[in-house]
């Protein structure tokens, strides 16, 4: 299974194996990672699964939908050019080794 690295705001790293076809958000919450809230359960409605993707890996990700773009304008931690919602990122073999930074706040 692809390996995804989550980096907490304090620098702590957690590596998770996430099955292909599940979202980063699902993989993180199912394994109990702090820092991903995902209150809507992956419906792209709440912007509480915000992550900052390693800039050099951004191009590996699926394109952003209009709704994700709009929701990112309302995140609790400031939006950056590498901001994404982790519920909209489906894990593929190409994402093995992806590194995402968790924001200070999700709500």
């Amino acid at each position: 299974m692809p390996n995804i690295v989550f980096v907490h705001p304090d620098g702590a790293r957690e590596e998770l194996e996430i099955a292909e076809g599940t979202s980063l958000m699902q993989g993180a919450t199912a394994q109990g990672i702090d820092g991903i809230v995902a209150e809507c359960g992956g419906n792209c409605m709440c912007a509480t699964c915000h992550v900052y993707v390693e800039p050099s890996q951004l191009a590996l990700l699926p394109a952003m939908s209009e709704e994700e773009d709009a929701l990112l304008d309302g995140t609790a931690s400031e939006r950056q050019p590498n901001s994404r919602l982790s519920c909209q990122i489906s894990v593929t073999p190409a994402l093995d080794g992806l590194l995402v930074n968790l924001p200070e706040r999700q709500v």
Binding site: C44, M45, S65, E66, E67, A70, L71, D73, G74
Partner: peptide, 10 residues
């Protein structure tokens, strides 16, 4: 029309 929804909440 997900964008309408998000903007309406704002």
């Amino acid at each position: 029309r997900p964008l309408d929804h998000v903007l309406a909440r704002k």
